[in-house]
Design a protein around this nucleic acid. Structure first.
Lengths: 314, 314
DNA sequence: AAACCTTTTTGCCCGGAACGCAAAGATGAT
DNA sequence: ATCATCTTTGCGTTCCGGGCAAAAAGGTTT
């Protein structure tokens, strides 16, 4: 078949058959009879067979026309069905929603959101990829990805979910036993809890700096790749940790942990002091410029779970 | 559906999916990538849903795209089928005729027929698919398929081209050196030539049976998947073969090969003796009930080449 | 039998759609 | 870091398709 417009011609063909005349079909479509005639001409030429026996008064179909009419109806119906089915993807909150984010964040804030979404939209299923690595929405066919910290990708569309601050925290118990560090230098003498892997997130090195001759991990007594476990370690008084507010914010507010402030952050060290003040973001990234209905629903649910201001805010 | 070009866009859509990129599809169609992009844009706009997640390097389909691709393929096939069916009403023998059959049969009997057809109908082109597997006319969009042996398909229309018998043959040279087998049992001591693959055709197992403790391939010294090569092997005196009459019939008549008959085929073994007597058929199968002009021409040409009775008949 | 009406066809013209071209933005590879 | 490939977008041009009008054809009415 070398006729790109075969289907298009087919629609006017069935119109003509149904209407019983070129003129009728023309009126029905808001065209002139000549336009119809040309379409039928093109169709007949493409197929190499006359479809109508032309007479000015009554138009009769040939065998080929008869057969074509039978098949064309089903064909066009199928075409319309398909179009409708695909169009139904718009606005529908069904199918599967694929999302990737860090394990800790996912477990604490995404799972409740998923639960809420599913209650409202039973026909939506969710695939949650809990991974430390930076997932790519387009390469991995993800509907959305949660990024915490700076965002580099340019083509991706980011929606800000909340801010993020890093907090220096310890348990009252630990502080009563070891005292609170007054400045950055005195931190080195304390028992520190650090993050394993996930270099994208700030670690102690960014707080302490890298003094020459000073082991970078001096004082670090516990190291773990799981934020939740780190939180548990701080809560049980193992030491001082530097954790995102969405991990320990509620503990600070509840008094289970105390936030520490260091005196050293004054004077000319405006740049260095930012380690404890700078607020990076938590973003929901997507590949498509126009968010799908699924996306909006999930995005809204996560926002609701996080709250405004965030449940972890002081 | 208010998109007259839906089907047209669909064709480029599947082209893009199959090709894996806009550029590939553009080259394949002799267009520029921009033209393709616009068509896809139009399709996405018409359907109201993004079909691809655009990234310069890899293009991924959305769920909607995935689903559309599934349906579009069948849809376009049906469209092409319809077009072809209606075009078949034209008595003119033009366009392309697609035929599938076994390699050996095709090379020996179809090629000459094709040559004859083309002499009479220069505007007809032929696609001949030489394959051992059983091709399906409707699935593979073939105008006809040649089946040798029993035919199982019910919906397909079969036209008998000729009968087929299996002949037990050897060269005079071989027989003078090794003697002729008197009965089935003595066959086991001979040098046998067997068919590789193509289990649909009878093999030695059907002749010898499977006596307990007797290796099924005992005595088989040459095995090949090509009838023509097997014929060559028998002609050069390698051993005894069990080949269709359309392969070795002319050799037998010319005296280059001798047909063997076994004494054992008497008495109560009427069922078993049929191995050498039963005549199955060679059929031309088509999907459409009403044969097209092309079909009739090709069918006639193949019949002519085969002759009545077949050129290979004793 | 003639006039009339409806329908189809054809020639001509025009408007718009689609394509090519080129440049820009982006991303993976060398 | 440079290169190459791929997609997108703006602009210009070309060609297709539709409208209009006239003509041809066949049926109906007077």
């Amino acid at each position: 078949m070398i006729d790109p417009r075969f289907a298009e011609h087919l629609t006017v063909f069935v119109d003509v058959v149904r209407g019983g005349s070129f003129s009728h079909a023309a009126r029905r479509r808001g065209l002139t009879p000549s336009a119809i005639a040309r379409q039928i001409d093109a169709l007949e030429h493409s197929v190499g067979v006359p479809l109508f026996v032309r007479s000015t008064r009554a138009l009769a179909m040939t065998d080929a026309g008869e057969r074509l009419f039978e098949r064309a109806q089903r064909l066009l119906d199928d075409l319309a069905d398909t179009h409708a089915e695909i169009a139904a993807f718009d606005g529908a909150v069904t199918g599967v929603f694929r999302l990737a984010c860090f394990p800790t964040f996912g477990k604490r804030y995404v799972i409740p959101a998923v639960e809420a979404v599913m209650r409202d939209h039973p026909r939506l299923s969710v695939e949650l990829d809990l991974t430390e690595r930076l997932a790519d929405p387009v390469l991995e066919r993800l509907d959305a990805v949660i990024r915490i910290g700076e965002l580099a990708d340019s083509t991706l569309i980011a929606t800000r979910l909340a801010g993020q601050k890093r907090l220096l925290v310890a348990s009252p118990d630990y502080l009563s036993r070891n005292g609170a560090p007054a400045d950055r230098a005195s931190l080195a003498g304390h028992r520190l809890i650090d993050k394993l892997h996930g270099a994208d997130l700030l670690g102690w090195a960014d707080v302490l700096g890298h003094p020459a001759g000073h082991r970078q991990d001096a004082g670090v007594v516990f190291r773990c790749d799981d934020f939740e476990a780190m939180r548990g370690a701080v809560l049980s008084g193992i030491g001082i940790a530097f954790l995102p507010d969405w991990v320990v914010g509620t503990d600070v507010r509840a008094g289970a942990l105390l936030r520490l402030t260091l005196d050293s952050e004054s004077g000319a060290e405006t740049g260095a002091e930012s380690w404890n003040m700078s607020e990076t973001g938590i973003h929901l990234l997507r590949a498509l410029a126009q968010p799908s209905a699924k996306f909006r629903v999930v995005s809204g649910a996560i926002r609701t779970v996080i709250g405004t201001p965030p449940v972890w805010a002081a």
